[in-house]
Computed example of a mutant assay.
Amino acid sequence: MRVLLLSAYTAVSHRHWVRGLTERLHEAEWTLLELPPRHFRWRIRGNPLTWMLKEDATLAQEYDVVLATSMVDLATLIGLYPHLAHARKIVYFHENQFAYPAAKEQKPGGEALMVNLYAALAADVVVFNSAYNRDSFIDGARAFLKRLPENLPAAKPLERLRERARVLPVPLDPVSDTLSDTSSETTLDPGAAPLASSGSRGNPNGGGRIVWNHRWEYDKNPEDFFAALVALSERGIGFELAVMGQRFRDQPAIFAQARERLSRHVVAWGPQPAEAYRALLDEADIVVSTTWHEFQGLSIMEAAQRGALPLVPNRLCFPELYPLAYRYDGSREGLIDRLEDWLIRPESRPPRLDMSAWTWPALASHYRRLLMP
């Protein structure tokens, strides 16, 4: 089976997904075309032209499956290479542009929205990494089409798309250090909220290590995260802080301000080598998200897989992924209250989560059936 794998904006989570597919599904003969994650507006609209000019010989070949991320302008690419229409066309949505948080400097224009929509309509199979991703795409597309000059009858086609769409998360790589009390673990169902196993780690005298391992960008809402930690520090509550994740040339000013104000708590700051990153997660007690923009949240899952307790807002994809005990109300005050409780009363913390059902060994068969129905 020959598979053309197209990733038009290869961000970290996209690269992780591509590597997992090509390394673990050996039944396929993979041909991979990727583009770097920069110049977003050009990339999402110009990827067919870029590939046509650089990869014409590759695109001219015959394939059984074309598997593309939602950033790929699949409809235009098929117009340029009509023979690709005969392949099984699958579009995978890591995210969708209809649910991108409003920001003057990064808000997607109509062309990015249309690329997502045309790709879904041109595909034989559409796959989302979470139900929230699917529903926010369908609902966002309907709202977008209502704003257009013509009153297009879009409701029924979009609902048919919702009904036939699949939900299949990006799998985690398995870790060698599994949970110690395997007799009491509960295997998670990726189609439902994770259930907790017994046993958790934490300093019985209070305190703990808090981790941030997200992109250093405004949509991850670092303001609420650091404001909560500053409030806890001013109350004299002890904790350690590891701030990691991907950062860019332009980053929110709050990071520099927070490093100065929280310096006595900091044990790590900035991106880490892979081994050091894993070691810091292994020693973490709590991993926090304050984001306004999340469709699955691999960084939270990675930390939870290694034993940190996730504390996530009660919005976006999180209600479908984590039980209520791991969610706060989404407000800054709610985050402060929950962190204070977990830090000074370790016995109040919920048990750690068993993430094994979200790993490649558990999900590889689902991807095989996707490619070879």
Rank of each mutant, 00 (worst) to 15 (best):
L195T: 09
R142N: 12
S233T: 01
R215M: 05
R209P: 01
Y218T: 15
V167N: 02
S197A: 15
F225Y: 15
I138L: 06
L168A: 05
S183H: 10
S198F: 09
G206I: 03
T187P: 10
Y132N: 06
L229M: 01
A143L: 14
P194R: 11
L188M: 14
G208S: 12
S176Y: 09
D224P: 00
L172W: 05
V167A: 08
P194H: 11
W212I: 04
T182R: 15
R147F: 00
L145H: 02
R162A: 08
I210N: 05
N221H: 04
A143K: 13
R209W: 05
T186I: 15
L195C: 11
H214D: 08
S197D: 13
R134G: 03
V175Q: 11
R215H: 01
L158N: 02
A231G: 10
R147E: 03
A228E: 10
D139Y: 01
W216S: 06
T187A: 15
L158R: 05
R215G: 09
A154C: 13
I210G: 03
S197R: 14
A192D: 09
N151L: 04
D224Q: 10
R209V: 06
D135C: 00
P169V: 08
G202A: 05
S176Q: 12
A196T: 13
N205V: 00
P222N: 03
R164K: 14
F144A: 04
F226D: 01
A154M: 07
S200W: 14
T178V: 15
A143F: 06
D224S: 10
E217L: 09
R209K: 14
A165N: 06
R142I: 13
R215I: 02
V230K: 13
F226Y: 02
A196N: 04
R134L: 11
R134I: 00
A227D: 08
K146D: 07
A227E: 10
R134T: 00
R142V: 06
G140M: 06
N203V: 01
S197M: 11
A141K: 01
N203I: 00
V211T: 15
L148M: 11
D173H: 13
L152I: 04
T187Y: 14
L152F: 01
K146M: 02
P171N: 05
S200H: 12
A155I: 08
S136Y: 07
F137P: 04
G208H: 07
R147S: 13
S130P: 01
S197T: 11
A143Y: 03
V175S: 09
R201K: 11
S184Q: 15
P194G: 10
P222Y: 03
P171T: 04
R201T: 11
R162Q: 07
A231S: 13
G208F: 06
V230Q: 09
P190G: 06
L161T: 05
G207W: 03
G199H: 04
L232R: 07
P153L: 02
P174E: 08
F226K: 05
E185S: 13
H214E: 10
L195G: 04
S233L: 08
P169I: 07
N203D: 12
E159N: 11
L188R: 10
V230N: 05
S183V: 15
V170W: 06
T186P: 01
R160D: 09
W212K: 09
E217C: 10
Y132R: 06
A165D: 02
T182E: 15
I138G: 00
L152N: 03
V211S: 07
